[in-house]
Structure formats: C-alpha cells, structure tokens
Design a binder for these strands. Structure first.
Lengths: 217, 217
DNA sequence: TAAAATATGGGTAGTACTACCTATAAAAAT
DNA sequence: ATTTTTATAGGTAGTACTACCCATATTTTA
C-alpha cells in the first residue's frame, strides 16, 4: 500500500497535534493537511489530494457533519472518519445519512483511529464498539419519556385531533374534516393542553409531533 | 434459562409458519402468539406475557415500526426484533429512534433469528451483518438528493435563526438571544420562507424541524 | 339516580406569526 | 465603481392559536 494522504480537523490544537502523532506512528500514514474548523477542512480538500479525512464533529464555523457533507459533494468517494466526544444519537444518525465511513469516539481514539483508517480506505467501515453498543440501547425514549401515561389521559376525540395537529393541520382544516366547529377544535386543544400541562404557542404542536406516531413518513 | 414466550407477526402465513418452526427448533423458545398484521400484534401483546417480539416491517393495517412503537409504549423493556426484506436506510433509522433491539434481514432469517433472539433477551442487540455493512456504504445520497441545495441558499444568519426555530423558540426569544429586534427576526423568517418557497402558518417551523439537525435532543 | 366527564359551540382578548410595505448601512459580488 | 445581497428595523393588516369566559346535551361514572 502506498502512503496515505490524510486530512485532520479539530478546533483544539493540542488534540490536533496528538492526533497527528498517533496517526503518523504508522509508516504508511502522512497527515498532509490540518484544519481548525470545518470551513478550513473543506477548503483544504480542494487544494490537496486527500485519501482519508478525519474530522472532529464539534467545531466552530462549520461542524464536522456539515463539512463532511460538503466534502462528499466535492469528492464523493472520500472515506471520512468522524471523531466525537459524546455518545449522542442525533449526530450519528446524521452521519449515517451523509454517508460517513467511520465513527470513532474520542475516548477510544488512540486505539481506534488507526484501525478505523485502514478499515475505511479499503472501502470498509468502522464504528467504535462502545458507540454501536450505546446506539442500540433502550433509551431511545429520550424524546418520549412518558408516552402512553399522558396520552391515556386523552379521550378518543382528543387523540384524533392531536393526530391531525401532528400533521401540521390547522384548526380550521381539522374542523372541516371532522364536520365540527372550529371553536370546538379550539376547545379540544385547550382541554388537551390542560390535561398535559402544556402552555404557550407551539407547545401542543410540539407535543403532537413528538408523541404521536405518524402512520407513514 | 426458562422458556421464552415469543410473539411473531407477518402477513404471509407461509413465512409465519416457517418462522415459527425455525424458532421452535430451539428447546427454550415457544411461539405463543402469531399475528398477521401490526394491530393484531399490539393487541396480542396486551393479552399475553411476551418475552420477545419478532415483527415483519412490511405489514398491512399497521406496519412493524408503528406496531413496535406502540408495543414499547405499553411494555418499554420488551426486546423487539424487526424482520425486513429490503436493505433500506429509512426504516432502519426509524427503528433506531424507536429503540429496537434487533434488525434482521429476511434473507438471513433462518441463520440469524435464533442468534438475534438470544442476543436481545440478554439485553444485547443484533443487526444482520449484511445490513450493517450496507448501512455504512456510500450512497446515502439516494435518500435526500437535494437537502443541502435548499439549505445552502440561506445565509449564516438565516441558518442560525432556522436552527433556533427548530428548537421551538419564538421570534421574541430568538431576538433576545441574538440581541436584534423581533422585527428583524420576522424579516429573516420571511426571507427564509421566500427562498424555500414556504407559505402558511407552521411551514417554516415544519421545515426547520425536518431539515435542521438539532445539536442534542 | 346524581354527579362527572365529554362533545359540542359561542364570546372576548391577547399573542405570535405571516405577508406585504418601506428604509438604511454594510458587505459582497459584478 | 456600481449593483446586489445581507442585516438591520419600522409600519400595517390579517390569520391562527392561546387563554380565559360561558352554555347545553349526551354519555359515563360513581
């Protein structure tokens, strides 16, 4: 295998330096570009031949996810490795959408990055074992902590209206669909809000979006 | 280990029968409920003690994902195994959100289901190797071909505001956070809406929720 | 059977956002 | 150097929803 040209990006200079040294422990790996934010990384890609990009997710100006997206638009086959401090679900999902080749936790970086790099340059993929273990753990309920408990307080009419609210329908539309007065819909909304202790403008819409299972998305 | 009470659901009776026999090859496994659609499966759960649920995704009346969601509302710790014919990204992402314990391709079902069942009842997880391999392959661009196109029309100020909108913040709150006039926020909102061809009450909020990656949920 | 919850609808006031208008200064693009 | 875009902010009108008030008929619960 010939030498791998590697781009790394992280907003913490010390981590960046450490990362570079860990990577260059390998004979075949050479860090040819270092960026301190996403914008720099994207720009750097356009001015160099890069075989692998290793990006931190949490960066100012442009985060790793955005940067990765831009980089893949420019060089679709580029294997990108994302580094992150946090075991969070949302950014990982985003990374899946974008088409990231590897996802490594910073805490495991020293042991994982090199393995990950070799995995992705060969067209494979790599996810930190701790991350994948976390991802499929139960608490995907972060969004809905008390789902049925609260929903069971509602009557079927109220549930029906909540369901239509979750589809971004206006009270006028709901009224027309159910052949009732718009006023009745308002009253139902108020009753639902009171039962669920919701106040303020979009609180009911928000609850509906987060708690009502939409038939098909 | 004592006998596992298993619920299976699939709309094809022949597959259902085959699945049952494959599962019951194991001494410890007993299929105590069979459902031909999601609704039945959810109902069945409420009338029986179930240790593991194995659901097909593509079912009439209520699909496996919806059914799984309902079932977890009722019995949050239930290990659910989803079966699917297709290596698609979207339903898998949905499954991740819901909190599914295992994801098995039908083509590998015979060899995988039993392993998967044992994995999930022990609190672990299981994904068909072919599926996980596919997920991290390049062409994630097939799903959202023009996502960034639209977002890239926006200026950074507009993006910042969009991000705050997605967090259900009011224009007043956004204005205070950015030390600008509420009026300016309104103007930005209008400009964003015009750029994205959005009209009507909650269309901007909807767009924000659906297109802006929220930092941590 | 009496009381409570539910579904229906009306009134009034206030808030938040949309949808248009205008305007100015700074920055970016041509 | 001129034009365009961006960010700022104000005005006005209308719409949609919230948050209260009220009433009545039906259904459910106690």
């Amino acid at each position: 295998m010939q030498t791998l040209n590697i781009l790394i990006a992280d907003d913490h200079p010390i981590f960046l330096k450490g990362l570079k040294e860990v990577i260059e422990t390998e004979e075949e790996c050479k860090v040819v570009m270092q960026a301190v934010n996403g914008q720099e990384a994207v720009f750097a890609l356009k001015t160099n031949r890069i075989d692998v990009a290793v990006l931190d997710i949490d960066m100012p100006r442009m985060n790793g996810l955005e940067a990765a997206q831009k980089m893949l638009e420019f060089q679709p086959q580029l294997p990108i490795l994302l580094l992150t401090m946090h075991k969070e679900r949302a950014p990982f999902m985003k990374a899946l959408e974008i088409g990231i080749a590897g996802y490594v936790l910073k805490e495991n970086a020293v042991t994982d990055v090199v393995n990950a790099i070799y995995a992705v340059v060969q067209g494979g993929n790599y996810i930190s074992p701790e991350m994948s273990a976390y991802l499929l753990r139960k608490p995907a309920k972060t969004i809905k902590p008390v789902p049925d408990d609260k929903l069971s307080l509602l009557t079927s009419s109220e549930r029906q209206i909540l369901q239509k609210i979750s589809m971004y329908k206006s009270s006028r539309e709901i009224a027309d669909e159910l052949f009732i007065s718009e006023k009745t819909v308002f009253n139902h909304r108020m009753n639902i809000s009171k039962k669920l202790n919701l106040t303020g403008k979009n609180s009911l819409l928000r609850f509906a979006i987060e708690h009502v299972s939409t038939p098909d998305t």
